[in-house]
């Protein structure tokens, strides 16, 4: 009895937090989404969302988020695999995580300089005789910088999953005749799939609502749902439409969470 009382007491901060910072904002967002620009109750925003402009925006958000997640995974997995095999793996891991502590805006500005006309990549191209290319404000630079920013979040869960694998399992696979590639394909990858799923979630969901980078690095040539929300709230002051996009974004996130959710097997 006393124990339960204590537990309820400990629940209070958690419950308060959830109500104040999770439930209330979602309700508010949903509430605002039913008001048009002039403040009248209507479904106009929802109707507007299903017009080609916003559907196209949704599609392109998903496409870019997919690309960002895909390239992050392609780079992160081998990196994590390599890290688990190095001697000072925790140190190497730390070095990869450290850049994620630096302010995003700062990193974005640094990339404006790097990818600019006179940045090192273009100087290199010039040296090769290829000549200066437009790198900044392209799909390439946008995806590159996004991948750079998200990659630590992809590496961490995969690294942890790999690190937990007992080495005897890999030995067992080779012992049974598996080559290195087969061992990876049939044992290592399936056993770390939960780490991969977590990594993809952590990258895909924020990538879906990226803003700032779409302006700084992609020069507003890439418009995602996140950019649209930012614009509606800060510039056009159309809170209703911004809230409506946010509602859809929240729905998409829940769907992704459910689809990629890690179910506990067995027991």
């Amino acid at each position: 009895m006393n124990n339960r009382k204590m537990r309820n007491l400990f629940m209070i901060p958690y419950a308060l937090w959830i109500i104040l910072f999770v439930v209330t904002p979602i309700i508010l967002v949903a509430y605002y989404s039913f008001f048009d620009i002039e403040g009248y109750f209507s479904f106009a925003n929802y109707k507007k969302f299903f017009t080609p402009v916003y559907l196209k925006m949704t599609l392109s958000s998903f496409w870019y988020a997919f690309l960002i997640t895909f390239f992050s995974l392609i780079i992160a997995y081998p990196t994590a695999l390599f890290l688990t095999r190095t001697k000072h793996k925790q140190l190497w891991l730390l070095l990869i995580i450290v850049p994620s502590w630096i302010n995003l805006l700062l990193k974005a500005y640094a990339f404006i300089g790097i990818f600019g006309k006179y940045g090192p990549p273009n100087q290199f191209l010039e040296w090769l005789g290829i000549g200066t290319k437009q790198i900044l404000f392209t799909d390439f630079s946008f995806i590159f910088v996004s991948v750079y920013i998200f990659i630590p979040f992809m590496i961490l869960p995969i690294f942890n999953a790999l690190n937990e694998l007992p080495s005897s399992i890999m030995d067992a696979a080779t012992d049974l005749g598996a080559s290195k590639w087969t061992t990876f394909k049939r044992v290592i990858f399936p056993l770390t799939i939960d780490g991969v799923k977590t990594g993809c979630q952590i990258v895909f969901i924020p990538a879906l609502s990226l803003f700032m980078l779409t302006r700084l690095i992609a020069g507003n040539r890439v418009i995602t749902l996140g950019t649209a929300i930012e614009q509606h709230f800060l510039v056009t002051q159309d809170w209703g439409m911004g809230a409506t996009i946010a509602v859809f974004l929240i729905i998409f996130m829940f769907i992704i969470m459910i689809l990629t959710g890690t179910r506990k097997r067995g027991v």
Binding site: T174, G177, P190
Partner: peptide, 18 residues
């Protein structure tokens, strides 16, 4: 090891949990 006609039973069994 994958080319040897030897098989091992490991201390922790090393079964594939998936």
């Amino acid at each position: 090891p994958n080319k040897r006609k030897v098989n091992t039973v490991f201390q922790d069994y090393a079964l594939f949990p998936h």
